[in-house]
């Protein structure tokens, strides 16, 4: 039932964000604690699965960072649905998520797990685990409400303790929310490091490798 609900999503173009949806500003607790505890004596490697956003880049510009912006959430949502593709699902995900020899320190998945079927989350997490070292953190959000926006939100980082998100549409759907316990079942290579409930039923989480 959960998988079929996820697959009913319309096409999502993350490159364009309309002004139809609502905007939300919120304080982050986990990201703030994690970021302020970072060792900035060496460059921080960040993998951002979302699209490029000006204030996010502005924020990271103040630090010695190496950021890879994949802009892949829209593609990931459609992975496995194209019957005409020559690539199997794992190969499609490998093509979407770039990995080089050096692992990342921080992977920003934003809210994509709320919009992916279980099998895609599992395949994706294997790919992400290859990009991690033992101290890597995966940062994102889960929605605890049964009424959710039909497409992923667009997140921006303004400071280590403040972010905002913008919905691309005001349309919502009824869905059984994905909780952290279920998420860990789909992602056996990772464990939940910390999570905290913030505003509007959003759960901020940090994952670490098992």
């Amino acid at each position: 039932m959960l998988d079929m609900e996820y697959r009913a999503l319309p096409k999502f173009d993350q490159e364009f964000v309309s002004s139809k949806g609502s905007a939300l500003e919120f304080n982050t607790l986990l990201f703030s604690r994690y970021w302020t505890g970072f060792d900035f004596s060496k460059p921080i490697r960040i993998l951002d699965l979302g699209g490029v956003r000006s204030s996010t880049i502005d924020f990271f510009s103040d630090y010695p960072c190496f950021i890879t912006v994949v802009n892949s959430i829209g593609e990931l949502i459609y992975t496995g649905r194209d019957d005409e593709s020559d690539l199997d699902t794992a190969e499609q995900i490998n093509r979407i998520i770039p990995i080089d020899e050096q692992p990342y320190d921080l992977i920003l998945v934003w809210d994509c797990f709320n919009y992916l079927p279980a099998d895609i989350i599992t395949i994706l997490h294997y790919r992400l685990s290859l990009a991690c070292h033992k101290n890597t953190r995966v940062y994102g959000f889960l929605y605890t409400s049964e009424k959710q926006n039909i497409s992923p939100w667009d997140f921006q980082v303004h400071s280590h303790s403040k972010m905002s998100s913008q919905a691309s549409t005001a349309e919502t759907r009824q869905i059984r929310p994905l909780n952290s316990l279920k998420l860990m079942q789909y992602m056996p290579c990772f464990k939940l490091d910390r999570s905290v409930l913030i505003v509007n039923g959003m759960q901020e989480f940090l994952l670490t490798q098992n």
């Binding site: 960072c65 190496f66 890879t68 802009n71």
Partner: peptide, 12 residues
């Protein structure tokens, strides 16, 4: 905002 970018940014 509105720009299209795909790649890495090295700010060291």
């Amino acid at each position: 905002d509105g720009a299209k970018f795909k790649g890495s940014i090295d700010m060291t």
